[in-house]
Design a protein around this nucleic acid. Structure first.
Length: 424
RNA sequence: GUGGGCGUAGUUCAAUGGUUAGAGCACUGGACUGUGGCUCCAGUUGUUGGGGGUUCGAAUCCCCUCGCCCACCCCA
């Protein structure tokens, strides 16, 4: 092998770490799930919104929070040629809120409800259910502050999970308070842990200063032990938040939607207020959340818009796929016709016939180039074609072509202009 | 960022440190001159992830590196 050939071989590229191709036949599963979600969400009045994949870095820092892991170490951030700091979106809500404010969508009748599908990017170490480019289906509803829409949004998520056959998915529910009650709770938490600091992991010692709520979510044994008896947010919720949460639980009960209260459910994004929820599965390994969301009543204001309550959730598509891969049956598009030809003139006739049939709406495959009739039929069989149309010398002379139904083995002759009659 | 496991043909996997690294599937062709699936036959496919070392001899042992997977962390 020459040096040049050697170098050429080494140019075999692969996708960047944690970033994957989605190929057939898997893509049919993706399309099916996207279609199901779209159909369902539209029944609830959600409309598709497409926001850019790249945004100004600031909007993620402002919304997700400066002290979160996502912003601190997981964003794909770069300078454009004019020196602006841009970031590949690590989540979808920030963009939708930015768009909502930028286009004054608050002037439209409330509530405004949107859904989106697309890739998100986080620079993390890949593992089961966690990727650097991953896909989310998300929804966001703006302009309703009452618990009715919280219940409706959760119901919509549950319906979606049922429709795609996700079993054993548990809805975990919590309220993390609002700007009235959370500061008090934070203060109590800091007090509670201040004489236990040496027993906490180093991360939690840091969190004690930066974001004490996260200590409640830590998985280190020592931290789990030491948070026994820690203050619960439920006891510190203000009147407003308490009523909201109680009403939501009551609504869910009346909708017969099962849920588990998880007072330790703390979301990793700082913008959440009041209601937070997560759909988790025990069949996913360590990354068990298939969907998560909550209310974010201050974020629109944070982005310079008018006070606007909002709520939303995002579904992790790869995780959904691993849960439904064995269960959802997908229909491959099988060709109705396969055109086998013998000889140059037949090839041309075959191509023309294929075009005519396709214009009538049929899925037609042809054989490209010369091969024995045997191998052409073998190929038709392999790709699951239903009817083979054979064009050779005999057929060119008579103007009739031979057809064979590979499913029933029936065969016969038909006028080249009446092929459709075989299948009608 | 930290740990653990694994890298052999397109794919699934074999090969005690010892001939020329094999097999199933897949692909192509033939048996069957213009009729698929089943069967049989033949053919194609490899810097054993890469680099270095030990050895008479390395896919196998050692070191480095890259990649994948899993877990921690974090999250969807």
């Amino acid at each position: 092998m020459t040096k040049k050939e050697k170098e050429k071989r080494q140019l075999k590229y692969n996708a960047p770490k944690g970033i994957h191709d989605i190929l057939p036949p898997d893509i049919y599963l993706w399309q099916k799930i996207e279609k199901i979600s779209k159909n369902l969400f539209e029944k609830y009045g959600y409309q598709e919104i497409r926001t850019p994949i790249i945004e100004h870095t600031d909007i993620f820092i402002r919304s997700i929070g400066e002290e979160t892991d996502i912003v601190e170490k997981e964003m794909y951030t770069f300078l454009d040629r004019a020196g602006r700091s841009l970031t590949l979106r690590p989540e979808g809500t920030a963009s939708v809120v930015r768009s909502f404010v930028e286009h004054n969508l608050n002037t439209l009748p409330t509530p405004q409800k949107f859904y989106y599908v697309g890739p998100m990017f986080r620079y993390e170490r890949p593992q089961k259910g966690r990727f650097r480019q991953f896909y989310q289906i998300g929804v966001e509803a703006f302009g309703e502050k009452g618990p009715l829409i919280d219940a409706e949004v959760i119901a919509m998520l549950v319906n979606f999970l049922n429709l795609i056959g996700c079993e054993n998915v548990n809805i975990e529910l919590n309220s993390i308070g609002c700007e009235t009650c959370r500061p008090l709770f934070k203060k109590e938490l800091i007090n509670f842990f201040s004489n236990k600091l040496s027993n906490l992991c180093t991360d939690c010692q840091r969190r004690h200063k930066t974001n004490p709520l996260r200590i409640l979510d830590c998985k280190v044994d020592g931290c789990i032990e030491n948070r026994q008896g820690a203050p619960m947010i439920s006891r510190y919720l203000c009147e407003n938040c308490t009523v909201h949460f109680e009403e939501l639980k009551n609504l869910l009960n009346n909708l017969n939607i099962p849920y588990t209260l998880n007072p330790e459910l703390v979301r990793g994004l700082d913008y959440y207020t009041k209601t937070t929820f997560e759909a988790t599965s025990n069949q996913l390994g360590a990354q068990k959340a298939v969907a998560a969301g909550g209310r974010y009543d201050k974020l629109v204001e944070e982005f310079g818009g008018p006070p606007t309550s909002a709520i939303g959730f995002a579904i992790g598509l790869e995780r959904i796929i691993t849960l439904t891969k064995e269960k959802l049956t997908i229909q491959y598009p099988d060709p109705l016709f396969f055109i086998a030809t013998i000889g140059k003139e037949a090839e041309m006739k075959g191509l023309i016939l294929a075009e005519n049939l396709r214009q009538k709406g049929y899925y037609v495959e042809i054989h490209y180039g010369n091969a024995s009739l045997k191998s052409q039929l073998r190929k038709a069989d392999r790709i699951n074609a239903k009817v083979v149309l054979i064009i050779g010398d005999e057929e060119l002379k008579s103007g009739k072509i031979k057809w064979k139904n590979l499913y029933t083995k029936e065969q016969g002759d038909v006028d080249i202009n009446a092929v459709v009659s075989i299948v009608s």
